[in-house]
Design a binder for these strands. Structure first.
Lengths: 346, 346
DNA sequence: ACAACAGATGTAACGGATTACATTTGAACT
DNA sequence: AGTTCAAATGTAATCCGTTACATCTGTTGT
């Protein structure tokens, strides 16, 4: 690979002139510039950007920590990141961490060792916290699943309000016996969605029943399994609110396998509005999140920090939207009579 | 950030000794090593890997060009890549290119400018070909959708045989009027799958009908749209073979919306075996591809080339598997009588 | 004709780690 | 004690582009 000295030799100028001709063309004469450009062409010269990065101390890389790219929602977030990063001439180093703390800490080291300038975390975990930090805090943005008191800017959505809105929708259809299939117990995201669900129940004067909360892990399978448990109950729920669409799709399949009709027998709602949500049978009622916008915002925020265009650490809250499709419907009157004696007796 | 000189000063040794103590511990005395390690700790020293990479000329980064990460199949491929890359201590620079040649060429420049050591392309396009190459060929591996005469190792699957196998399955169920929803026309992948489909028809003595080939673009929507066109025909197909699962899911939804039963009225088959395939109603019959294995193999191959563990350029062909689920079934006898007079008349 | 000054170009230091080569240290042996 | 040799360590060059500073060239004004 030819280097700048080779070009300088061919153009019969100094290396400084070559560098200037390519960086700030207005600083060299037209004649020299042409000579240099000709030499560049002749030598097939490509500046070694590893050298440029080394000298400048900036890698122009961003680490992205994703619990799993196989999740359709995260895939959309990554698309958005990609778009923003490309526009601002940064590259993304992808870390598919399977939500493993150790793996995330290993990726965080890319920032510590100057291989990346900053990090975007899509999970409620601070990988820098466990790094022996003699230095100051490294640049980071936390998006989607955010830490309660993140030491960095966050991009999130009012999960509590969103879950409340969806629960209110189900309540308005007459459902009183609403199950929720949650995410992993420790996640603040899950906690907030459960809180929103409880808010809505409370506002409607419906008693909260802890046993209607089923653990899941955001996969199709876990939605299926949780639904099996719900169907085994003495008193079946009339609606199931899943914390993401994958689990909702798993739930719908389980219900059908047991000969139940959605929404006639049981309503199902999801969260995220992945592309498949509009293609289930019936189409899935869900909470739409602006996934790509999450990605774009997180990247732009991080780059703003890196380029010092930002002084304070903002908290961006993106809007959600209730998408009502066919998987939720009014509770059956027969259900009210047969399955919920409490209502009948009052 | 402290550097190696700082550590050398603290440990009262030379920078060379510090470097050796950290790289090849057997070359320094135990006493010195301990002094150095203490100094490293005290200084909070982290080697600047940008400097290491610059000096070594190896970035230990690989560019991955993906048409779209939002596609579930590619998401799985990326997971596999990630896994292999991490094991061999490489990082992945993700390029979500939307199948845009210009974007891909831009990413290819990362390799040309030493920011990445090699490139993995998941599409049938050579981004290096359009780069003014005074130098030799840059390291690349082509996987999944491969070029006909790729100037590099490829990892692929016998798409022709796979499509033939699935078509044979449909033929064995009595279907004679089998539509195919294709991918983009120019893709060799699509061409091969169409060829396999034709092979099977020919072997079974069934006439090939060009109008049964519908263009699609691998999205849910395109599967839906193509199916609309098929349903508008005078003579409806009794089976639809889609070149990926997303399109098959779109097709199933469309059929249901028109009051048709799958597979009783029309059978549907897909390709890829994405996680959602097992959760459709009915579950989707499809061709399983070892997606993660594609990713792992591509990465390992590329790294082998980079580390010169490979002399010739191999072509790896991974196995496929027919996954028979509920979306395909025997053709209805009534169909044979009413809808396919050609069969009746012979 | 000369001073003053801007514009163009060159020289060399710099960034941080690695490593070839040179030098020192110390142990083992006669 | 002196020689030999291996082990340990140090010195300085190197990777490649950028840029502060120095120098040179040519123009303008008096």
């Amino acid at each position: 690979m030819s280097n700048i000295r080779e070009v300088a030799r061919l153009a019969e100028v100094s290396v400084a002139t070559v560098s200037r001709a390519l960086q700030q063309p207005e600083l060299v004469s037209v004649k020299t510039r042409n000579k240099v450009l000709a030499a560049v062409k002749q030598a097939g010269y490509q500046p070694n950007l590893l050298a440029v990065k080394f000298r400048s101390g900036k890698s122009h890389n961003l680490v992205v920590l994703v619990p799993t790219v196989a999740n359709v929602f995260f895939a959309r977030v990554i698309s958005g990141m990609q778009e923003a990063a490309q526009q601002r001439r940064y590259s993304l180093l992808l870390g598919n961490t399977m939500a493993d703390d150790k793996a995330e800490i290993a990726y965080a080291r890319l920032v510590q060792t100057s291989q990346a300038d900053g990090l975007i975390q899509l999970r409620a975990f601070d990988p820098f916290a466990s790094l022996d930090m003699t230095t100051e805090r490294l640049p980071m943005v936390n998006a989607c699943e955010v830490l309660d008191k993140a030491p960095c800017p966050v991009v999130t959505l009012d999960n509590r309000a969103a879950a409340m809105a969806m629960t209110e929708h189900l309540l308005s259809l007459g459902h009183r016996n609403i199950a929720m299939i949650k995410g992993p117990a420790r996640s603040p995201l899950t906690r907030d969605r459960v809180a929103g669900y409880r808010d809505a129940l409370q506002a409607a004067g419906v008693a909260f029943d802890e046993t209607l909360l089923c653990p899941g892990n955001f996969t199709l399978q876990s939605g299926h399994q949780a639904t099996m448990l719900l169907l085994a109950r003495d008193q079946r729920p009339t609606a199931i609110f899943c914390e993401n669409d994958e689990m909702a799709i798993g739930a719908i399949q389980c219900l059908k396998q047991h000969g139940l009709k959605v929404p006639d027998d049981i309503s199902v709602a999801g969260f995220d509005d992945i592309s498949f949500a509009a293609f289930t049978d019936p189409p899935l009622t869900t909470v739409a999140q602006p996934a790509e916008e999450f990605g774009r915002t997180a990247v732009n925020l991080l780059i703003d920090i890196l380029e010092q265009k930002l002084t304070l650490l903002p908290k961006v809250i993106l809007p959600f939207e209730l998408v009502l499709r066919g998987s939720t419907g009014p509770v059956k009157t027969s259900e009210l009579v047969s399955d919920t004696p409490a209502v009948h007796l009052t």
